[in-house]
Design a protein around this nucleic acid. Sequence first.
DNA 1: GTGAAAGCGCTAACAG
DNA 2: CTGTTAGCGCTTTCAC
Lengths: 359, 359
Amino acid sequence: MNDVATTAGVALKTVSRVVNDEPGVNAATAERVRQAIDLLGYRRNDGARVLRRGRTASIGLIIEDVADPFYSGLSRAVEDVALRNDCLVFTGSSGEDPQRERKLVLAFCARRVDGLVIVPAGSDHGYLAPELSAGIHAVFADRPAGAGLDVDTVLCDNAGGARSGVAHLIAHGHRRIAFLGDSAAIFTAAERFRGYRQALEAAGLPYDESLVAMGTPEQARVQADLGRLIALDDPPTALFTGNGRTTVTTLRALEALRATTGPLDDHGATVRPLGAPGPRSLYPAGLDLAIVGFDDFELADMLTPAITVIAQDAAGLGRTSAELLFRRLSGDDPPAQRVQLPTHLIPRGSGELPPRSCP
Amino acid sequence: MNDVATTAGVALKTVSRVVNDEPGVNAATAERVRQAIDLLGYRRNDGARVLRRGRTASIGLIIEDVADPFYSGLSRAVEDVALRNDCLVFTGSSGEDPQRERKLVLAFCARRVDGLVIVPAGSDHGYLAPELSAGIHAVFADRPAGAGLDVDTVLCDNAGGARSGVAHLIAHGHRRIAFLGDSAAIFTAAERFRGYRQALEAAGLPYDESLVAMGTPEQARVQADLGRLIALDDPPTALFTGNGRTTVTTLRALEALRATTGPLDDHGATVRPLGAPGPRSLYPAGLDLAIVGFDDFELADMLTPAITVIAQDAAGLGRTSAELLFRRLSGDDPPAQRVQLPTHLIPRGSGELPPRSCP
DNA sequence: GTGAAAGCGCTAACAG
DNA sequence: CTGTTAGCGCTTTCAC
């Protein structure tokens, strides 16, 4: 900047004025400055600018994993809102590891981001308190903050969504509905499980613990649980899966289980799709289970049968969180609020299959 | 920092030493400083630190769209490498818009990121030249930089992958193979088209322009092209799709076309999956086309038939690009190189279907 | 309209 | 082992 000033034969401050389009500079002078800038290839250093002005015009986004379509949809929405506010975004994947989350958040804070959108991995966010009182705003998305933190939160209607999905299966005649979900330690999984129980209760159906399988969405675990469910004396006729990953894993597990039972009959067995109409005599090893999954996913409509889902709005989650954040950054300071986004059921076939007639 | 120093009764520099774990501080003094830090809730301002030290320990990543699984996989890999190098990453989606790309890149540069990983949208990157000569390193991923820019580049073997996919179809007896791809203006699309032609030539098959349909992967456009292909006097027996999005869109278009033809026969028509064995008499409206798609996608193996693909390694692209970048950041300065990553064919069924016997 | 001086929060270089 | 000084590149404040 100094060099530019010298070259243009003006003072430093004049260059600053030109660079920032501040009023009160003679057009001719400004032109001379601009020429010097081009000549020297000068670029303003925003880091230094930030140091002086206080605001960094950047926010931090912490999610579980950018590579997960749910979070990448959320990311994109946050990014769009940020860009609209002339704000850059640092992105970090926590990988569901509270330590990594903490490290990222603190690194972002050290860079003095103006605000944070956090999909929390851990449940203890005490480390954030000093940052918040230092003036960094945070919005929690998808999952609430641990106890003691008073921040804006944007959630999906997890319980309500699960409730309507399970009610849908009940409406289609199912009485024995299994719940396959993520680990109960995860907020969304617990909420969806709560919705499952509410739906059973509302329909006057008994809750049977043996129909519940919660844990990591690994193929091996899901398959083992599914094997156990299918082998029950009174097996389920329908499955409710608690998130996108679990739904897909369950579908794979079902296919794997079918593969071990050999051809079902001569009715196109080699390509017989998941749950396609066909003989049901081989149940419990057969695959005529109805399925409703929480969370929509690409190609759900192209499977056979197409998968009925409770769709949640990842982009809406991101957009709403970011908008809440920017409202605060622009000075608005209402008490912390909790927003809940609706979900909706998309019937596609798998959730409308009737219960198997008999074993 | 000043306050901490005063509180601890030491000089500013000692606080700096403690904060940065520099050696040569009395344990007791350090402890006093740490107490003052806790008491005051002091956090080092990395922005100021950066201003002084020169390196920002941050990089910028520009991709087309984080919400696209290909790019989100790439993102995650870049992020992981960055974290391993104690480096933060600014992410920006260009949305295939050269203006937005430019804006993002320049914003990142103004923040003085140490380097950039760019999946370019435009083909003119002249605006980057001054930044590069100002010492910001850039690596181009997935697509090369426009002319005149001498930068590291990491690409997939687009032509080779397409060649092997088309050769695979030829090996399975196909002679009339259509190419459905992205707009020819996009580097990867052009390369894959080149591979398609090479494969035809290697097999001594004629190139027929009427079998080629390149453009945006919109449902309407793909469906129209597909309708045209199917209505040809000598229609294709196989399709090669040029990228993941096009593959999925093609599958949807095929399904839509099938829906308009009504039930094919009494053989489970209501759930008859894409290309399942069955009567072929209804071709050209039937769907017994073999398909090989460039780019793997989730659930490709769960469709019926499962989709044969040429898999490219999005994460590998991201990892390699980031590693190349960090090698340069650590002082290494070889001439700009171009790395090409291999692709591999995953046979799953759709690519092994034989040509229809006759119309 | 323009400019000079102070200082944002930190670290490098050199004393003591 | 600890402290002092200068200055990173910019904006703010106030004077001309």
